[in-house]
């Protein structure tokens, strides 16, 4: 099988390709198997050490961003049980007949989670763009 298969027949070689496809047998797919990890080619020598430092920076930036967002979420959500314990009167308030804790946990928590996720994706991609720009320079 040639690397072209995933992309379709190369122009002008359609018949040949179809024939080859007919001859081709079904292949068993092994998705998990030990001992077969293919490593990508490695930039050697000096390049690697400079690259390494850049990658270290990228990893640190990304982690700091993810950890900050994670911490914000944890404070927002995991703060709730403590809040309910310290200020039990919250449960007495209702909005449209629904007690506030139910409203927060049953409905409002989800848009918050989606919002944090959206923010993360934007920031993560911005960090990656910055990284690529830096490499280009």
């Amino acid at each position: 099988m040639s690397p072209h298969d995933a992309l379709g027949p190369p122009p002008g070689r359609r018949d040949e390709w179809t024939l080859a496809a007919k001859r081709r047998r079904r292949v068993r797919v092994v998705l998990a198997a030990p001992h077969r990890v293919v490593r990508p080619p490695l930039p050697v020598g000096q390049q690697a050490t400079v690259g390494e430092r850049l990658v270290r920076d990228l990893v640190r930036t990304q982690f700091r961003m993810a950890a900050t967002l994670g911490a914000v979420t944890v404070v927002l959500l995991a703060g709730l049980p403590a809040l309910f314990l310290l200020v039990p009167e919250i449960a007495d308030h209702t909005v449209f007949g629904v007690p506030v804790p139910w409203l927060i946990l049953g409905v409002l928590a989800y848009p918050v989670l989606v919002g944090v996720g959206h923010l993360h994706n934007r920031l993560a991609e911005r960090n990656e763009r910055d990284f690529v720009t830096m490499l280009d320079n």
Partner: peptide, 24 residues
């Protein structure tokens, strides 16, 4: 680490669909 974190378009993340499961 480079493979895990480098942006996709740099092409460090590898794809086993082509490399690992083909007959060649």
């Amino acid at each position: 680490m480079l493979r895990l974190h480098a942006p996709d378009r740099l092409g460090f993340g590898h794809d086993r669909a082509v490399q690992r499961f083909t007959e060649d």
